[in-house]
Amino acid sequence: MLFLQYPPCSTCQKAKKWLDEHEVSYVARHIKEENPTKEELSQWYARSGLPLKRFFNTSGLAYKALNLKEKLPTMSEEEQLDLLATDGMLVKRPILVDENFVLVGFKPVEWEETLRK
Rank of each mutant, 00 (worst) to 15 (best):
S76W: 12
E99H: 10
H30Y: 14
V97I: 15
E110N: 05
K16H: 13
I31T: 07
V102S: 06
E113P: 03
W111V: 02
L83M: 10
T74C: 05
K32M: 11
T114I: 05
K71E: 11
K117T: 12
V24F: 15
A62W: 08
K32L: 15
K71L: 09
T114P: 04
L50R: 13
V27C: 09
K117M: 09
R47I: 08
L50K: 13
S48I: 02
R54K: 14
V109G: 03
E113N: 13
M1K: 01
L68P: 06
F101R: 02
H22Q: 04
A15Q: 00
D98K: 02
S59Y: 07
Y26I: 01
E110S: 06
V102D: 07
A28R: 02
D98Y: 09
K117N: 13
D98V: 01
G105S: 01
D82I: 08
G88T: 09
Q80R: 12
Q13V: 07
Y45C: 01
R93P: 04
Q5R: 15
L115N: 00
F56G: 03
N100D: 14
E39V: 12
L50Y: 14
S25C: 10
R47V: 06
L68E: 05
L96V: 08
L103T: 03
E79A: 10
L50F: 13
V24A: 12
L66E: 05
D87N: 14
Q80Y: 07
T58A: 05
V97D: 10
E39G: 02
V24C: 14
R116I: 07
L66M: 10
A15G: 00
E79M: 03
G88R: 09
L84C: 02
R93M: 06
L4E: 03
A65C: 00
A28Q: 05
S48P: 00
L41T: 05
P108I: 08
N100S: 08
R54E: 12
K64D: 00
Q13G: 04
L52D: 00
V24N: 11
G60C: 05
E113D: 12
K117W: 11
V91I: 15
W111T: 03
C9S: 09
Q43T: 12
K16D: 10
D98E: 08
L61C: 01
C12L: 07
L41H: 06
P7C: 05
E21G: 06
E113C: 02
E112N: 06
K17N: 14
T74P: 00
M1S: 03
H30T: 08
F101K: 00
L115P: 00
L81Q: 07
E99K: 08
Y6C: 01
C12Y: 14
E79V: 00
V104E: 07
E40I: 02
P108G: 06
E33R: 12
E113Q: 14
L66Y: 09
Y63D: 00
E78A: 11
H22R: 06
G60R: 10
K69P: 02
